[in-house]
């Protein structure tokens, strides 16, 4: 999937440690994010969110004039922008576990640059996915807007189930998606015993997207766990 449009998104960082702000913005800038704004308190954060209208907020939980959860609630009053928390995991771990507050993800301190980037990309992709309706695979293109596969001039339509499966896999492209997640997407909670049906759907998708369906390269099986969709840039 082409994600270059994501680098134009504006990201608001709120943390009271200047060094940490510096670190996070350096990591994001080096990755290619151009619009980074920073704030070091709840009040500054609210002001920046109002005036700059960022597309994503990365908030520290502990701030000098309140906590990040409060800041997020304030932001929610006027914006639906995605929010990622930076947290020293133990604090309010349970609040975060359910992300019940409407946060989109959280990153436990201490974190590695890769981890930060992974989460930021994932959240941006999830929240702004309609911007990229086409996914490139080894031997074809999937056009999600039209729900069809373009393969050497030929177009093959996708069924609703195939579309949902591919959409789920594409959202986590390059990562393993478990059998459970796929079954839940298709059949709802507690989907026991649907593995055979899932296999059938996967087989049909492979016939549409793989050059050799018996030796898949794009939609690969991870034994015992699930499937992975390999995309091309």
């Amino acid at each position: 999937m082409d994600h270059s449009f994501l680098f134009t998104k504006k990201i608001l960082l709120v943390d009271d440690e200047p060094e940490l702000l510096e670190l996070v913005s350096v990591i994001l800038k080096e990755e290619g994010f151009e619009n980074i704004i920073t704030a070091s308190s709840v009040s500054e954060g609210i002001d920046a969110a109002k005036t700059e209208k960022p597309d994503l907020a990365v908030l520290d939980v502990m701030l000098p004039d309140g906590d990040g959860f409060f800041l997020m609630q304030q932001i929610r009053d006027f914006s639906d922008m995605p929010v990622i928390f930076l947290t020293a995991k133990d604090e309010a771990a349970d609040k975060l576990a359910g992300l019940g507050l409407g946060a989109d993800d959280y990153i436990a301190k201490p974190f590695l640059p890769e981890e930060l980037l992974l989460r930021v990309h994932a959240v941006l992709r999830r929240c702004y996915k309609t911007d990229a309706p086409v996914v490139k695979l080894a031997c074809c293109l999937i056009d999600f807007e039209r729900a069809e596969v373009n393969r050497g001039g030929e177009t093959i339509p996708l069924t609703a189930m195939e579309y949902t499966l591919l959409e789920t896999l594409a959202k986590s492209a390059g990562k393993i998606v478990t059998l459970d997640t796929l079954c839940e997407v298709l059949w709802g909670d507690n989907p026991f015993g649907y593995e055979n049906s899932l296999n059938a759907h996967i087989r049909r998708i492979r016939e549409k997207i793989e050059s050799d369906p018996s030796k898949p390269v794009s939609l690969v099986t991870i034994k015992g766990l699930g499937y992975k969709l390999n995309t091309r840039k």
């Binding site: 301190k109 590695l112 930060l116």
Partner: peptide
């Protein structure tokens, strides 16, 4: 210890 450690891991990672 987490915030300083974030810095250590972040910069060494970079």
């Amino acid at each position: 210890i987490r915030t300083p450690l974030s810095m250590i891991m972040g910069y060494s990672g970079r």
